[in-house]
Design a binder for these strands. Sequence first.
DNA 1: GCGGATCAG
DNA 2: ATGGCTGATCCGC
Length: 738
Amino acid sequence: MPGTSSVTSRMALNDNKAGMEGLDKEKINKIIMENTIGSRYYKNEVKREAHVRERIKKMKERLQSCTSEQKENAIYKADAMIAEIEKGRDLTRTIIHIDMDAFYASVEERDKPELKKKPMAVGGMNMLSTSNYVARRYGVRAAMPGFIAKKLCPDLVIVPLNFSKYKEVSKEVQKIFAYYDPNFSAMSLDEAYMDVTEHLQDRLLYSKKTRSFAYNVENMYKRSSNQTEDIQQHSSDELMAEKRFKSFGFTAADVAEEIRFRIHQKTRLTASAGVGPNTLLAKIASDFNKPNGQTIISSLRDEVINFMANLPIRKVNGIGKVSEQLLSSLDIKYCKDLLKNRSSLMLLFSPVSCSFFLRTALGCSSNRLEAESERKSISTERTFNACSCLDEQLEKLKELCQTLSNDMKKANVQGKTITLKTKTVDFELHTRSRSTLIPVSSVEELFEISHDLLKQEVALSNNNLSLRLMGIGLSKLEPISGTTQTSIKKFFGKIDNIGLKHKATEQLAVCGSSHSLFEKNNIVEELDDPDEVDDKGGHCNPDELDVLSDDRFNLNLFNDKFGYNGHQVNTDSELVLDTTLLCPVCGRNDFENLQYLNEHLDLCLCGKNSITQNEKNGNHKEIALTSKSVSTAAVDEESYLSAIEANKTSDISDTVGVDFTCPICSVKFNASQTTLKYFNTHVDSCLNRKVIKNILQTDSKMSIVSTTKAKASKDGGKPKKRRKIDSCKGHTIDKFFS
DNA sequence: GCGGATCAG
DNA sequence: ATGGCTGATCCGC
Ligand SMILES: Nc1ccn([C@H]2C[C@H](O)[C@@H](COP(=O)(O)OP(=O)(O)OP(=O)(O)O)O2)c(=O)n1
Ligand SMILES: [Mg+2]
């Protein structure tokens, strides 16, 4: 009887997580079991486990019924597939995957430092969203009920969720991502892929200053305030003495370090990074040295294959607990086994799954980050105390419909397929769905249809439906307002907007586009070497410029590209060290505050060197402050360039010793610091469709600029979710021929 | 098109 | 006593 002792695979601790190596699984599982056996949840897990076993049994039968000829043929087909995969192998790109460490927990720790040394988790007694690394040593982890975690670790501190905080932090971090790849692909609040191939090319031209970033002064204050009693006395001198900038080199590893450094300075949180030639490898790599570490996977074919060979299949993105079990039953535990037992794979799984497995085994996956795609569904669900009264269920259903309807409005979608989800008190899941001819959007329609679906469900349960959860979802979505906008239509709409802005309201356009050269963080300094900065300790009220806070454009980057020796230093910090505000165009340095400098700069770039024109202030400020965020250096640069082009007298293009002139943007390159190759790279990027992509992406921001004000934080700052081209997520190996 | 199942975060 | 929520995908029918 495969009863009680073998069901553990579903219930047992998942130690497939950073910080959970070498735990006493025996002991931990015992405690988990003691607090699990007999529960309804457990009974349902036993059932699901049985289902998996059944699948395994059928797989084995199927395999045994195959002739040796069929098996040979399967190998032949697998090898053909492998050859095809090899042919398409592309190791030329560089992907970085960044993953924040114990994200929610780290945010809470940051705001309550006394938690740092304690075992701590975020969530509630019912469910934990994540745990810090101290708690992980007790076996406490994400997706574990709080009450069980408490048994594992009685001292565990459980902190409630604070979603808006995590979102805010996420926004900050994603702004940094955009600096390296405006097309970065965010998988969640705490994690993203960047294709830094182009950045690495461009970076070869960066000066040391451009590759240098400031330590956050605020952090130093906090540090010293913990250690010394007299902050006022010490801070200034100590800060001066302390090394205040950190420089980074040219390799992908350097870039990963730089990104993690900037994240840390900006948010006081740590992240881990993985570098590799594709998303599969980058993702695995980022987990390798967690927390607060990074791993680089070579882009040499043989090294990639070697790396994959001894990797447990469970580490691969689309392979979860069940897939691991199924494959394990075929003696496939490491990726190399996928190759060894390829004949079984070919005989049991769909071509799509086989391709995925073989590509994985060879270390191949997507190395192009997918462009933003529209959401495909929207849903909401709630768990509650057992409820078998229809009236009460309908009451809850109504509320769900209301919630969903609100979310639909926010997302600007309606849809044609309504799905009701129910979970019985025995944890049995069911869905009932219905499609309509016309998309539904109102609460009333949602309720009417879902009510009907619930009646169905009640009937199917012999009028005895006791629920612990209900959910309602909508798919086959369409936008609510306006005509269905295809990407290409949006794209041209955008181009029109930009053109219009430049022509009709030239000044506004230029102001709007140049604002991001400066932000409150970016201070001007007189020195060339970031390591020997001297300054007078100044202070800038962060509240004043809040909206603008991290819209950052790396002026040094601009200077590197166009041969201008600027005075800007890089900082992501919220505090400003120096109040010397210097116009990089005309050299004026008597600006009272950053806003004046910004205004002046706008005019200076138009060739009008004056700081009058304060009438426009309200408007100008609004635009300057709101047109921002994921907006990228490249976009700003482009706008900047068009401004220059429209006015060739601009000082910036007047560099000395020029040997090359870009035929597109007229910017000149100095032969002494620019090889022909890099010049060509620049021309390429001028022509590059990437610029178009950037514009496309900046859609929301642009429309904010051209139409209304404010709301920058809400929708405008939200980078839409992007996915990898290879859809590994939800990839299952379900299919087998039975 | 529907329902169940798997996966990620 | 207490076992989440959102979105996506795949498979079989
Ligand atoms: N089942 C899960 C898994 C994760 N999360 C949330 C909380 C996590 O903090 C965040 C990021 O997920 P990760 O898988 O990256 O886990 P952490 O960042 O917490 O830890 P680490 O990445 O260090 O392993 O997503 C969640 O709500 N439910
Ligand atoms: Mg993380």
